[in-house]
């Protein structure tokens, strides 16, 4: 119902080793689909719509579109 991509897969990937944990992507995410702790970040698969706004907003280019699909940590 929410995932626009034909496959339904999560296609957004945050490169955790390159992330600065600044929160820019969290602040623009319309779905509240990004979990950010002090030094840990992941996309909440159940909420992400692959809208890609986080990719455009990342100041240091560490969020990528991965058309193969991404394994996500699930919402607990």
């Amino acid at each position: 119902m929410y995932r626009q991509a034909k496959t339904g897969k999560l296609l957004i990937e945050i490169l955790p080793n390159k992330c600065d944990f600044c929160g820019c992507c969290v602040g623009i995410c319309p779905e509240d689909a990004i979990e950010l702790k002090e030094a840990e970040i992941y996309i909440i698969d159940e909420r992400c719509t692959n809208c890609s706004k986080c990719i455009w907003s990342c100041p240091i280019e560490v969020i990528k579109f991965n058309k193969e699909g991404v394994l996500s940590k699930s919402l607990a």
């Binding site: 600044c22 929160g23 820019c24 969290v26 602040g27 623009i28 995410c29 319309p30 509240d32 950010l36 706004k53 455009w56 907003s57």
Partner: peptide, 20 residues
């Protein structure tokens, strides 16, 4: 900038990506 607490309380807090 994350402003998630307000969202959980039901307020619309996210910023349009064009204004970030």
């Amino acid at each position: 900038v994350e402003s998630r607490v307000g969202r959980w309380a039901g307020l619309k807090t996210f910023t349009d990506f064009r204004e970030m």
